[in-house]
Nucleic acid binder design. Structure first.
Lengths: 218, 218
DNA sequence: GTCTATATACGGATAGAC
DNA sequence: GTCTATCCGTATATAGAC
């Protein structure tokens, strides 16, 4: 009876309070600091302070700064790619639908977590070694329903540029660049954070229109 | 007579040999390493080694790592903005001409120095304090001939989206994003460096067509 | 101006008490 | 699991000889 009570309490601790676990607090703090400052510029002490824990606990739970970073990086890239794969491989939706879905999803996504793009792109540049190799990019993207649909449309003369990679980089550029260029672009526009955010939300409707127009021109 | 000879020699040293000066060698090395790895990840020893000079000379000429970085950063941003200002403030050229000029110039420019965009954008993110404040952005961009022309065209119903900032961020996104996303995009396409470079060169012609199409749609 | 040697500080990581 | 105290490598910067 006493044993059973103890067991239940431990289970509750593991499952219900998972978000307030020390380990989890460290991970969340690490995510915040790493995404803000990048790997090289963050000190393990910053993370400990942000998490409100003792520095030694970071090494106790995650062994090293690098291992903790790799974990955060993997989760972040995975979180980013997952939806991409879902959308691009939807056999039911058209090319236009997919573009709209990507714009809508990623604009909302990045507004929630604005540092994700610049973080991923600048860390991948250094981590040339083999971070991307751990993700099934060719399966998820190159061999996607989208790429097949696009090639078919090009052969049928329904789109004018035959390379689907141009289309994908255009779409992602229109969605992502305004966020990574925000410090500069917002200053050019003389806008508040709120105004800039609204402009990004506008683009959920505008980008599908623009990319559809791009599909039809010589 | 002796004085004059000495003067001539010093002048020659200053003007002709300027590129092989120790000071200049350090600057060039610093530029290379900073742009590749970012401020936090570069060590002054890396720069000294790259320049083939003694570490102490770096501090002798530039006082500190941070001062040297600030110099490189300022020159890089200035070099980037200068042509932008020239193109946007050309009273003779049309909106379409300007888009074409920007695409052509910056694609060539970034191919020569591929790290410039991700370097600028990721360092500006940290340097929130006041790097951009040192540049006359509003004068160069917000009050440019381009912004005026665009607003006039919008009023005359010749372009469908009335905010020139949308147009500018679209154009820059189409030009710049494929470079900062290269590690990911090149992998998706399964391309060699050479093939990717050719694709970027293609875009000098394609981007003007695309942005013109975007100008005309609802 | 350029070198060697070194001061000084900082950051990652661990030992060991509780 | 969590803390304090500390070790140790490394990075910036300078002192001082040449």
């Amino acid at each position: 009876m006493q044993k059973e009570t103890k067991y239940i309490m431990e289970k509750a601790k593991e499952e219900k309070k998972l978000d307030t676990t020390t380990e989890e607090k460290i991970k969340q703090a690490a995510r915040k600091v790493f995404l803000q400052k990048g790997y090289a510029a963050t000190r393990t002490r910053d993370i400990a302070e942000e998490a409100g824990i003792n520095l030694a606990l970071l090494n106790y739970y995650f062994r090293s700064k690098e291992k903790l970073f790799d974990l955060i990086m993997m989760e972040t890239v995975a979180g980013f790619m997952q939806t991409m794969g879902m959308i691009l491989n939807n056999e039911q939706s058209s090319i236009e639908d997919k573009a709209e879905a990507i714009a809508a999803h990623y604009i909302d996504f990045i507004i929630q977590d604005p540092n994700v793009p610049i973080f991923m792109l600048s860390e991948i540049r250094n981590n040339v070694d083999g971070l991307l190799e751990k993700f099934p990019i060719r399966q998820l993207v190159s061999n996607s329903a989208f790429f097949r649909q696009y090639r078919e449309a090009a052969e049928a003369g329904k789109v004018t540029e035959s390379n689907p990679l141009h289309f994908l980089m255009n779409l992602l550029g229109l969605v992502i660049f305004p966020f990574i260029g925000q410090p500069m672009l917002q200053r050019i526009g003389g806008m508040t954070d709120h105004q800039y955010r609204n402009m990004m939300l506008e683009r959920k409707k505008l980008i599908p229109i623009w990319v559809n127009a791009m599909l039809k021109v010589t």
